[in-house]
Every structure is written in structure tokens, then in C-alpha cells.
Design a protein around this nucleic acid. Structure first.
Lengths: 100, 100
DNA sequence: ATTAATTGTCATCGATCGACGACATTGTAT
DNA sequence: ATACAATGTCGTCGATCGATGACAATTAAT
């Protein structure tokens, strides 16, 4: 399944929760959140805190991953052309502190 | 890459942003957030709003997906045993409204 | 119909968000 | 060294969060 919107995340959480036979109360306790929060997130709350969402997913045993090989965004395309090259160099220089 | 914590998300965003040759300002504008927000999220802000995170990832062309076939959580294991069966039935009954 | 479990609604309240602008710091290029 | 761009810091402020508890609504089972 792919997650694009907060609604998707909510659906994913509700789906997994049910698949595991947990009620909202149970998930809330295991994830360290309120039952109200579970209700909200399953409804697709857009401003839910990232940390809590990740915790809920963790508790549900949901593995979140990103596709490393994603092309350029559709709308607002990047400057194009040589940018990629500059980008590679720029990124490789690690502008800001980063332990290596 | 796998995303477990807010820090992971931040790293993913910063990584993709650089790989695309975007500066924080550019990402901020495209994602409709403040530059301050970008700074914070890249640092792993745990309470960042889900919606904004998803938007940023979208803009960066990052595809988020979850593994449907995840086993039971490690800590706080589920009741165990017959639970799965009950769960399947329970979930299949679709307790709360769900257009089918 | 009655009971119990699950889910949803509502109001309250301290804590935090996210945008904004000004400024400081760092890195890079010349 | 100078200049410029990118990044990070700081404070302000209206908006929203997330926890809690009480209550209503819905569902399933008997």
C-alpha cells in the first residue's frame, strides 16, 4: 500500500489494528497515546504528530519504507538539465556538519 | 530505506532534497511550508504535522509504502493464539461504517 | 429486549506548532 | 579578505494538539 495523505495513514492504521484484533483502547495503551488520538488519526487527522504516528505504526508492526529510486517530482519540476550534476557535487561536499 | 523515527524522516528529507539540488528555501516554497519548518523537520522534529511531512515527501518525489505482510509486534505481543482467528472475523464484519 | 463491548462526541486546558522576520553563523567561490 | 548563498538561531503570536473524563451511539451476543 502507498501512503500519500493523512487519510491513507489513518486507513492503514485502522486496517492493521483490526487485522491484529486490537481495539482502539488497546492500541492507545500500547502506543502510549490517548484513545481520542487513535480515533482522530484513524479519521485522517492531518496535523497529527509525526512521532506518535510512527509509534503507532511501530506497535502495529508496520514497516515504513521509501523508494530510493524515485524520479523528479511531477509538478514544479526541478530546474532541469545540469542541476543533477551540480546537486551531486553539492551534496557530496556535505555543506553542513555531518560526522563521517 | 526504512523509517522508524522522526530522525529517520528528517534524514530522508534532507537526503532527497540535496540529491535533487534544492535548498531549504526552495523545498519550503514548493511544499508550502516555512523555511523554519524545513530546518526543524530535517533535524528530526518529533511533533511535526503529518500532513506537512507527507507534502514535503510528495514534493521530493519520495514514495512512501508499508509492508502489508508484517508479523506481530515484538514488545507487548498480542494476546496470542486464537486471537488471529477472532480478529479476522471481527475485521471482516467491518464493525463501523465502511462503504463497500 | 438486555447486556456488554467498542466506537464516537464533547468540552477543557496546558503545551506546542508553524509562519514570519531579523539576525548570526557557516561554507563556497572569487 | 570579500562577497554571497545556504543554513541555523531567536522571539512573537494565533491556532491547534493531545490527554482526560463523562456521556452518547452503535454493534454483537444472548
Amino acid at each position: 500500500m502507498r501512503l500519500r495523505t493523512a487519510t491513507d495513514v489513518g486507513a492503514a492504521i485502522r486496517g492493521r489494528r483490526r487485522a491484529l484484533g486490537l481495539d482502539q483502547k488497546g492500541l492507545a495503551k500500547r502506543a502510549g497515546v490517548s484513545r481520542q488520538w487513535v480515533i482522530d488519526i484513524e479519521r485522517g487527522k492531518p496535523r497529527a504528530a509525526l512521532r506518535l504516528v510512527l509509534r503507532a505504526l511501530e506497535v502495529l508492526g508496520v514497516v515504513l519504507r521509501i523508494d530510493e529510486s524515485a524520479p523528479a517530482p511531477s509538478s514544479h519540476p526541478l530546474p532541469s538539465g545540469a542541476i543533477d550534476l551540480d546537486a551531486v557535487l553539492k551534496a557530496h561536499r556535505e555543506p553542513r556538519g555531518k560526522r563521517t
